[in-house]
C-alpha cells in the first residue's frame, strides 16, 4: 500500500539530463537556429514543445538527427527556452522577453508564451 515518494526526483533527473546535454552525451539531434547549433535530446524536446512533438512523432522524422528552425526564430530566445526545458527556469529579461515570446509561440509552448506575455505586460 502507498509508496515512498522521492520529492527531489524530477529535479534530480532533469539536472542529470542537463549535465548530459552540457557534455554532449547521448544527444541525438542538432537544432540550427539562424546559423547557431544547439545539441539536445529529442525526448526532452518532444516532452516540452508541441512543435517538436509534431516533428518527431511523424514517422518520416523518427530518425532525424538535424533540424533547422524558421529564420524568424531568434537564437537567443531559443537558447533561453532550451535552458528552460532542461532546468525549469526561464531566465527572462526585458531585452529578450519579446523574442522569447515569439520563439515560444513558434515552438508551441503555450504556457511559457503566456508567462512571457504577462511578463511583458507587467513591465509596461
Amino acid at each position: 500500500d502507498g509508496c515512498i515518494q522521492f520529492t527531489r526526483h524530477p529535479g534530480d533527473v532533469l539536472l542529470n539530463f542537463n549535465r548530459l546535454r552540457s557534455r554532449n552525451i547521448l544527444t541525438d539531434v542538432t537544432i540550427q537556429v539562424d546559423g547557431q547549433l544547439f545539441h539536445a535530446h529529442k525526448t526532452i524536446l518532444v516532452a516540452c514543445s508541441g512543435f517538436f512533438y509534431s516533428v518527431f512523432m511523424h514517422p518520416e522524422n523518427t530518425n532525424l538527427s538535424a533540424i533547422s528552425l524558421d529564420t524568424k526564430v531568434d537564437p537567443k530566445g531559443f537558447s533561453l527556452l532550451l535552458d528552460f526545458m532542461y532546468t525549469s527556469c526561464l531566465n527572462l529579461s526585458d531585452s529578450l522577453a519579446l523574442t522569447t515570446l515569439n520563439a515560444a509561440v513558434y515552438l508551441q509552448m503555450e504556457h511559457v508564451a503566456d508567462t512571457c506575455h504577462r511578463f511583458i505586460k507587467s513591465r509596461q
Binding site: G2, Q5, T7, R8, H9, D12, S22
Partner: peptide, 21 residues
Amino acid sequence: YEGVSTIKEMGRSVHEIPSKD
C-alpha cells in the same frame, strides 16, 4: 513507515552526473 500510505523522502533520488568542468 508501517501504516502510512505515502512517505516523503526528501533526500537525493538518483546519482549525480558530473558537470562539464
